[in-house]
Write a protein that binds this DNA or RNA. Structure first.
Length: 544
DNA sequence: AAAAAAC
């Protein structure tokens, strides 16, 4: 797979991880853009081995290896936007030019005055990098794979061209628009669907667009043919859509735009069968597909690229790298029992609400929230998929109103959610993938704002520590030298350690669950005795 | 590798 990545070109990769491969590979290919390495303390500069090639290389195809792709072009350029400079890499055939402003887009593609005024009404004055590049590609009816960091405006970059391409709301008399839903936006969680639906409505103001947030209730209204035929866009989770397909209440034969947000999540093994069923049901001859995410691991990218037709691939920034605006810290807590005392210590000092805390399971989220309340922390909220629809909605509402100061959640909140105020993210339980890490901490530092992310790790998290440390370094921040020197554990060892960890977590979950005051006092006393918390790094903010 | 999430 690594070899595939290198050969397929344009793939950003971690120089350290692939150091040997890089040396081999550099002999045979051209590397564009030599960047001056960032200043690192000598002791931490493990990149020195790569000697001035710290920034990931962009591989250029050398024709002879992959003749069928000879005509594909690849370019790289810097784009000025107000807050930040983002490096943008594009790959594909006949790539439409990027647009520097929404006005330029309007002039080139005859965008309606309605959309233009809705943009400025909602404070979208200047396109972000992904919007500059992605919107022209989608407006020219091309398939697109877009990779852009968290909080950089991916949602608008597919909603705007989708609305613009549909031209006018569907009417049953209009033969051009056909009958039935014309665009579908697929996302992994209900909360995200809700949020994106709201964004759609913002850009759709002033015209009678029929944009549906798909749920059991709205699915039922679609059984009425006269309603169904006038639907323009459906925002939905996969299983909801599949169950409507299977009940025969919905046809996707008129769908011309199919968007996958959080694409790598949508293409992982639990969702993939449903995705395949949905794609197969979209039988319209001019179906445009597009995938968006902040992360796209090689296996997901392969699936995505096979699904797309003559796609354009756009990468903003470095693939699988968090924004440098997020100050990242790794905090050692000896074992699971020391986490709660550490967190309470954290809250005993001044902090910036609202704070979002991630746990690994639903019971751990519930019991941690309970513990925080019992310990006198104000405005604590909890949100996971084990809660009822209404409970989940209420929790999100409180969050949006700024009533929650501390939100304890699971992976359900990790992707896509845009709570503008979030200042700090705490990974109470260590994320199980780098993708999870990147999306979780990406809940802060959005739209050019800064943010803080703290990640607790225990002795058991050792096997995964190095990969997260690599991510932190790739975003330009430092981690202690000993972590960079950790050996890459063998698969067997990871497996074994994973098992131990799980057993302990089950135990710990029971412990947290027993939330009597006595137990709690014991834990706090115990932690004081053995000095539970020790900051091992200070996240270093780097200028964008 | 694994939990969570999707109805």
């Amino acid at each position: 797979m690594e070899a595939f990545q290198l050969l397929s070109g344009g793939v950003q990769f971690n120089k350290n991880k692939f150091k040997k491969d890089v040396e081999l590979f550099n002999g045979k290919s051209q590397t564009q853009h030599e960047h001056k390495p960032a200043e690192f303390p000598a002791s931490l500069d493990f990149f020195k081995y790569a000697d001035g090639k710290r920034k990931p290389a962009v591989a250029k195809l050398d024709g002879s290896e992959r003749p069928e792709k000879k005509r594909k072009v690849e370019e790289e350029q810097d784009l000025e936007i107000p807050q930040q400079r983002h490096r943008v890499t594009t790959k594909g055939s006949n790539i439409p030019d990027s647009a520097e402003s929404f006005e330029a887009l309007r002039d080139r593609y005859h965008l309606s005055s309605q959309i233009m005024s809705n943009l400025s009404k909602n404070d979208y004055h200047h396109p972000t990098a992904i919007q500059s590049y992605g919107i022209p590609i989608l407006l020219e009816s091309r398939d697109l794979a877009a990779i852009s960091p968290t909080g950089t405006g991916k949602t608008i970059s597919y909603i705007l061209p989708t609305l613009a391409s549909l031209r006018a709301p569907a009417t049953s008399a209009d033969s051009d628009s056909g009958l039935g839903v014309r665009a579908i936006i697929l996302v992994p969680t209900r909360e995200l669907a809700h949020q994106i639906h709201n964004e759609c409505l913002k850009l759709a103001q002033g015209r009678k667009w029929k944009i549906i947030l798909f749920s059991k209730a709205t699915a039922n209204t679609l059984s009425d043919k006269t309603v169904r035929d006038k639907v323009d866009i459906i925002v939905t989770t996969p299983l909801r859509l599949v169950s409507s397909l299977q009940s025969g209440s919905l046809s996707l034969s008129n769908v011309r735009h199919l968007i996958f947000d959080e694409a790598d999540r949508m293409l992982d093994k639990e969702f993939l069968p449903q995705i395949e069923e949905i794609v197969a049901a979209c039988t319209h001859p001019s179906l445009q597909k597009a995938v968006f995410s902040a992360t796209l691991p090689a296996n997901a990218e392969k699936i995505a690229m096979d699904m797309l037709q003559d796609p354009v691939r756009v990468v903003v920034g470095l693939k699988d790298t968090p924004l440098p605006l997020i100050a990242q810290t790794l905090t050692y807590v000896a074992d699971d029992g020391s986490k709660l005392p550490s967190l309470l210590t954290y809250f005993s000092q001044p902090y910036n609400p609202p704070v979002l805390i991630f746990t690994s399971t639903q019971p751990r989220a519930s019991s941690l929230a309970e513990e925080l309340v019992l310990n006198g922390i104000s405005n604590v909220d909890c949100l996971h998929a084990g809660m009822s629809k209404k409970e989940r909605e209420d929790a999100v509402t409180r969050m949006r109103k700024g009533e929650s100061w501390v939100m304890v959640s699971t992976e359900v909140m990790a992707r896509g959610m845009d709570f503008k105020g979030i200042r700090e993210v705490i990974n109470y339980d260590f994320p199980t993938t780098v993708q999870s890490y990147i999306h979780r901490i990406g809940r802060t530092g959005r739209a050019g704002r800064s943010g803080k992310a703290v990640t607790f790790f225990t002795d058991d998290d050792g096997p995964y520590l190095k990969s997260i440390a690599n991510v932190i370094m790739q975003s330009g921040q430092s981690v202690p030298e000993w972590i960079t020197k950790l050996p890459k554990p063998s698969k067997m060892k990871r497996k074994q350690m994973g098992k131990t960890k799980r057993a302990e977590m089950v135990n710990a979950a029971r412990k947290i669950g027993r939330s009597d005051a006595l137990k709690k006092r014991e834990m706090i006393a115990g932690s004081k005795r053995r000095k539970s918390k020790e900051d091992v790094t200070q996240g270093k903010k780097s200028d964008p």
